[in-house]
Write a protein that binds this DNA or RNA. Structure first.
Lengths: 221, 221
DNA sequence: AACTGTGAACTTCTTCACAGCC
DNA sequence: GGCTGTGAAGAAGTTCACAGTT
C-alpha cells in the first residue's frame, strides 16, 4: 500500500528546496518544460544527482522529453509542505534577528512569523514589518495561542540554551539556531544550526589551503 | 620532509572552528586540560570523531591525560589562519548585510571588514560600526587598495552574479554568497553558499517527516 | 534521438574498537 | 586506569553508465 520509501535524505531535501525556487522562476518566465541538464545547471548541481533526488518522489518526468515545469513545481511544493503556512517565532531581535524577521524570502515559502521576542525592554515595542517585538515573558503564551511549531534563535550564546528549553517546553518541535553554541533539546525536538563565523572560517581556510598545496599544514614546530 | 597530509577535509575544518571557539571559552574560564569526551560534548560531536579531526594536525594530546587547552587553542588558531587578519568586503547593505557588518563574531576570528558597498544612493554614506557604506562604483578600487581576499554577497539574487564577477575580476579569491542563487566563478575563486530559507525549509520538512513516518511522502495522486 | 530513472561503483564522512602511551 | 591516536568497518552521499520509454 506504499511504493515510496518514507524518508528522503537530508541532503536531497535541501536540494529539492533549491529546485523548487528555480522551477518557480522558470514558470514565471513562461517556461513549460525543462530537462534535467538544464534544471541542474540552473540549480548548480550534477544532472544525474538531480534525477536521483527527484526519483525519491516517484516518476516525475517523461522519458525522452523532460519535466513539466508547473506540475513539478507544484509537486515539490506539496512534498516540502509549502502549502500549509507554518507558524514561526523568532527570539533575539538584534541585527541578525531583525534581518531575518524582515526577510521576504520566508513568507513565500510557507513560513509565517507570528511572534518576535527580546529580553531587552529597549527592543520591546519596536515595530518590524507587520509585527511588534514582545517581551520574552510572553513567549509561552504566544506559542500556545498560535500553535507555532518552529522557533528561530538569534540570541547571544549565553542565553540560547535557556531559550531552547523554553521553546521546547512550550511545544515548538523544530529549532533553527544561529547562536554560536551547540544546543541540546529533548527527544522529539529537532535543532538545526547555522554558524556564520564558521562558514567564513571554512571559506578562508579552503582558500588558503588551495593556494599552498605543497606546504605542510603547519610550518612551525 | 612532510609527515602530514596536505589537505584537511572540509567537514573537519568546520568542526575545528567550533573546537577553537570552545577551547577559547575554556581557556578564559581558567581551564588547563580537557579530555576528548568533554570537549566533544561541549562542541556537540562524537568523541572519536573529534580525535580523528585533531589527528589531521598530528599528535595534539597526551595519552592517558587529555589535551592542553591553551596550546591546542593556539595550534588550531594557527592552522585555521586566525592570526593574520584577512581583509573582507561586503556587498549589499540591506538588513542581512548590516547585521553581518556589525557582527562581532567575525572580528575576533581573523576577519577584518574593510569595505561595505551598496548600489543604492540611499544607503551610501550610512555609518555601520566603524565603516561608511560606499558606492558600488568604488568596489574595484577598495579591493585593490586593501588587498581584500574575501567577499561577502548579500545583494538581491538578480545582481549577485554581476557582483560575483566584479569581485573575482578585482582579485577576491573566496566568496560567501547569501543570495538565493547559485553563482559561477572563474577557476581559482571559491564560492560558498548559505541559503537561509533552505535551512528553514529543511528543518520544517525533517520535522514533518519525523511526525508522519508511516504515511507516504505524498498522499494525493 | 532524446531524456528519464536507477542499479552499481566510487568517494567521502562517521563510528567503532582497540593498540599504544602515560 | 584512563585517555589518545588510528586502522578497519559502516553509513551516507555522489557520480557513472546504461536500460527503458516516448
Amino acid at each position: 500500500m506504499q511504493s515510496r520509501p518514507r524518508t528522503i535524505p537530508e541532503a536531497t531535501v535541501a536540494r529539492l528546496a533549491v529546485y523548487l525556487r528555480v522551477l518557480s522562476t522558470l514558470a514565471d518566465g513562461g517556461r513549460t518544460t525543462v530537462s534535467s541538464g538544464e534544471l541542474a545547471s540552473a540549480a548548480g548541481v550534477n544532472p544525474a544527482g538531480l534525477r536521483k533526488d527527484l526519483s525519491h518522489l516517484g516518476p516525475c518526468g517523461v522519458r525522452g522529453v523532460g519535466y513539466e515545469v508547473a506540475s513539478l513545481r507544484d509537486r515539490l511544493a506539496r512534498v516540502l509542505g509549502v502549502e500549509r503556512a507554518r507558524a514561526c517565532v523568532l527570539v533575539g531581535i538584534g541585527n541578525l534577528g531583525s534581518a531575518l524577521a524582515d526577510y521576504a524570502g520566508f513568507g513565500t515559502r510557507g513560513f509565517d512569523f507570528v511572534g518576535l521576542f527580546d529580553a531587552s525592554p529597549a527592543r520591546v515595542g519596536q515595530q518590524i514589518g507587520a509585527l511588534t517585538v514582545r517581551s520574552l515573558d510572553d513567549l509561552e503564551d504566544v506559542v500556545a495561542a498560535t500553535g507555532a511549531s518552529i522557533g528561530v534563535i538569534t540570541t547571544p550564546a549565553e542565553v540560547a540554551q535557556g531559550v531552547c528549553d523554553r521553546l521546547a517546553a512550550a511545544g515548538v518541535r523544530s529549532i533553527l539556531n544561529f547562536a554560536p553554541v551547540p544546543l541540546v533539546a529533548p527527544p522529539g525536538v529537532d535543532v538545526r544550526k547555522v554558524d556564520l563565523s564558521v562558514e567564513l572560517q571554512v571559506l578562508a581556510f579552503l582558500g588558503q589551503q588551495r593556494l599552498a598545496p605543497a606546504s605542510s599544514v603547519e610550518e612551525s614546530a
